[in-house]
């Protein structure tokens, strides 16, 4: 592609492609915890994300007017990625994935199997088993995992369309705690690496993209900001900046100064 992106930046030589589908935006955002549906949609639009996650839950039959998120989100505007958030077993995760497939328009799933209520860290054993089951059923599986290389390699082997290691625990906002592990994963995996969870603010997103990963998935960093729509805008720019910086290749670090201006031609 010799096209120029909206920003005027040269097009990314390797656009994000997951499961045969190409995305211009490397930012994937969640739809949870916003003040209301209007703020949700405004933040999603400001983020520039094309793919957004959704959860599957019981309809509240006692609510006077129960509203599906689909009343507000146009699946033609956003590609919906159902998640299995809140699932603690392989069986539950597979069940929610199947419900999400029937509710939505695709066989994609953001697969979460949580192993611990306090940290929300993944149960990687159950995650692997659920990945195998769902891949066999034709799902495009994007598993949320920890930043462990061996688990990531097993998930890829099991047929995951991308691997999504955490930056830090879900909803923690602690940012990228182990850039070395994330770089290691990226260097060894063939499928896209999407950092999912833990990003707190724009500098976290930028620093994460500077590790060379393929994208970032976030929710709380937007929804829990004082101004979610403005933070969504910031995150969009941060992801683009971090990606561009990675492609540009940073200068080497030195522990001494090197002048930027000519050392010749100085006045006597």
């Amino acid at each position: 592609m010799s096209t120029v992106m909206r920003s005027g930046m040269a097009a990314d030589p390797n656009p994000l492609t997951i499961g045969g589908r190409t995305f211009e935006s490397r930012l994937i955002v969640g739809t949870g915890k916003y003040r209301d549906a209007e703020q949700t949609v405004a933040a999603l639009r400001a983020s520039g994300a094309e793919m957004v996650t959704v959860a599957v839950r019981r309809v509240d039959l006692d609510a006077s007017r129960e509203e599906s998120l689909l009343h507000h989100l146009d699946p033609k505007e956003f590609f919906l990625l159902p998640n299995t958030a809140g699932c603690y077993t392989e069986e539950d995760a597979v069940r929610y994935a199947r419900l999400g497939r029937e509710a939505g328009l695709s066989d994609w799933v953001k697969l979460e199997v949580i192993g611990d209520q306090e940290t929300l860290l993944p149960d990687t054993e159950a995650l692997l088993a659920a990945t195998r089951t769902l891949v066999a059923e034709g799902f495009t599986v994007l598993p949320y995992t920890n930043d462990d290389l061996i688990t990531a390699l097993k998930l890829q082997e099991a047929g995951a369309a991308a691997v999504m290691p955490l930056a830090s625990p879900i909803g923690s906002g602690l940012g990228l705690l182990n850039p070395v592990n994330i770089r290691l994963l990226k260097s060894r995996l063939d499928v896209p690496v999407i950092v999912d969870a833990g990003v707190g603010t724009a500098s976290d997103a930028c620093a994460t993209m500077e590790q060379g990963v393929d994208g970032i998935l976030m929710n709380t960093a937007l929804a829990a900001a004082d101004h979610p729509v403005l933070m969504a805008h910031a995150m969009r720019q941060a992801v683009e900046a971090g990606r561009a910086a990675w492609l540009a290749g940073r200068m080497p670090k030195r522990e001494w100064g090197v002048p930027s201006s000519p050392t010749t031609g100085m006045l006597d």
């Binding site: 949870g32 959860a55 839950r57 129960e66 419900l99 976030m218």
Partner: peptide, 24 residues
């Protein structure tokens, strides 16, 4: 969805009705 009109309920059935809500 294509079968909901064909399935008749029986005594003791356990039914779950779900939809998409906001989530991360």
């Amino acid at each position: 969805r294509t079968e909901i009109a064909d399935v008749t309920l029986r005594d003791g059935d356990r039914i779950e009705i779900v939809h998409f809500v906001g989530g991360g």
